[in-house]
Design a binder for these strands. Structure first.
Length: 115
DNA sequence: GCATTGACGAAGG
DNA sequence: CCCTTCGCCAATG
């Protein structure tokens, strides 16, 4: 895989933001995409996470879910159960592959980082 | 360069 | 929340 300078910056931006997510909080791909400025390309955020494997420092991709709070990316982890396990370790309740109280735990960089 | 794919999002049902 | 359709954009074949 070889990405252009443009996407390289995109990758770094995504990784950086994801690492800033506080414990016990979650955010969505769209929120990250919006904060970066790529806006509509929320899919690219998820795709960037796909490249976060083996990246140092570790990228807490388990704190990134889709807009409904669903653990859509669990299948891309080392093991499908790893994501939920990590979330529950941070006191985040997960039920039916979905984050409980997602609206309360939601962490939007575009808002939280400005405060 | 076109076609397909995808860890998404919004809107309508 | 689930389903479908459409839009989005970089990667991949």
């Amino acid at each position: 895989m070889q990405y252009t300078p443009k996407t390289k910056d995109f990758f770094q931006n995504v990784f950086d933001i994801v690492r800033l997510i506080p414990k016990g909080r979650v955010t969505s791909y769209g929120a990250i995409a919006k904060y970066i400025g790529t806006g509509g390309s929320s899919r690219m955020v998820g795709w960037a996470m796909n490249a976060s494997h083996g990246v140092k420092p570790k990228v807490p991709a388990h704190r990134v879910v889709n807009r409904n709070g669903m653990l859509t990316g669990k299948a891309h982890f080392e093991t499908p159960t790893k994501m939920q396990a990590l979330l529950e370790k941070e006191k985040i309740k997960v039920q039916n592959e979905t984050v409980v109280d997602f609206d309360k735990l939601f962490w939007d960089p575009a808002i939280e980082l400005v405060l």
